[in-house]
Design a protein around this nucleic acid. Structure first.
Lengths: 137, 137
DNA sequence: TTACGTATGTAATAGTATAACATTAGAGGT
DNA sequence: ACCTCTAATGTTATACTATTACATACGTAA
C-alpha cells in the first residue's frame, strides 16, 4: 500500500537536484523534456541524464509535476490539491499543453469514475484540441 | 484538412509490411512494442526499425491500431467503428491493457466532450486499474 | 555506534524513434 | 501503353529517451 501522493508527508524538503528541476518547470510552465532540462541546468551542476530522471521521478511521485505521456515531457502541477489524476489539453497545431481541472469536463469524468465498476485507481486524460490562437490563424 | 480516419477511403489495401504488422498485433491482442514486432517479423523480411515504425504509423493513421502512449506500445483496435478517440484500462500490477468502448464511462466522456466548450478533436484516455485477477491475488 | 533508507555521482548501455537518401511499386490520367 | 505522381520500400546512420550497475555520501532512528 504505497501512498503515492504525499502532500500528507507534509513539508517534505526537496533535495538540491529536485529543487532546481522543480524551479525550472515552475518558471517555464510548459512541458519540458528531460534532456532539455539537463542542458538548462548544466550550469547548476547537473551532469548526467540520471540526475534529471531521478529528480523527475521523485517530483512525479510527490505529485508536484506530471508527465505528459504522449509528449515524453514533464510539466508543473497547477493543481493545488494534487490528485494523481491528470487531464491535459494538447493543441494539435502548436503543441501547447494545459492542465485542466475543476471544470465540467474533469468533474464529469470524476463522477463517471466514481460510478464505474472498474477498479480505477487513477487516470491520465489527453484531450487534443485546436487552441484559440491556432483557430484564429 | 487531412481526414485522419479513413475507413471511408474504403477497402484500402494494405501493403505487405503493413499487413504482417497488423496480423501480428491482431493475433496477439496485447500491446506490443516496436522492437518486439521487429524481432518477431525478422523471418517475414522486416530488417529495420523504420520499416516497423512506418507500418505502425500508417496503421494508426488508418485507425486499425492504437498507440498506448504510456507504454510505448501498439495494440489492435477492437472498435469496429474506428473512432480516433481511444480509451484504455491498464492494470497497475500486471500491465494488462484493454481498450474500452461503448460502456457508461466512454459514453459519458463522449457526452461531456460534446457539451464542452474546448475545441476537442479527439482524446486518449488511460485509466489505471487493478484488474480482477490481480485483485484476487 | 551501527544499521538502514534515500540521494548522489559517474559511466555505460538499453530502448525508442527519426533523418536522409536512393529506389521501387501502384494508381490514375491521357 | 505510356507517363506521372504519390506512397511505400530498403538501408544506413543517428538522434532522442530512459535505465542498469556500482561506488559513495548523508541523515535518522535504534
Amino acid at each position: 500500500m504505497s501512498s503515492n501522493h504525499t502532500h500528507n508527508k507534509k513539508n517534505q524538503t526537496l533535495t538540491k537536484n529536485q529543487r532546481i528541476v522543480l524551479n525550472l518547470l515552475q518558471d517555464s510552465g510548459e512541458p519540458l523534456k528531460a534532456y532539455f532540462i539537463l542542458d538548462s541546468l548544466k550550469k547548476e551542476g547537473l551532469n548526467s541524464p540520471l540526475q534529471v530522471y531521478r529528480a523527475l521521478d521523485k517530483l512525479v511521485e510527490l505529485g508536484k509535476i506530471h508527465k505528459v505521456e504522449s509528449l515524453n515531457s514533464f510539466i508543473i502541477c497547477n493543481n493545488s490539491n494534487c490528485a494523481s489524476n491528470t487531464a491535459f489539453t494538447i493543441c494539435e497545431r502548436c503543441g501547447k499543453v494545459k492542465e485542466i481541472k475543476n471544470n465540467n469536463l474533469t468533474e464529469g469524468v470524476n463522477e463517471l469514475v466514481r460510478e464505474n465498476k472498474l477498479n480505477i485507481t487513477r487516470y491520465n486524460l489527453e484531450f487534443y484540441v485546436v487552441c484559440k490562437s491556432c483557430k484564429i490563424n
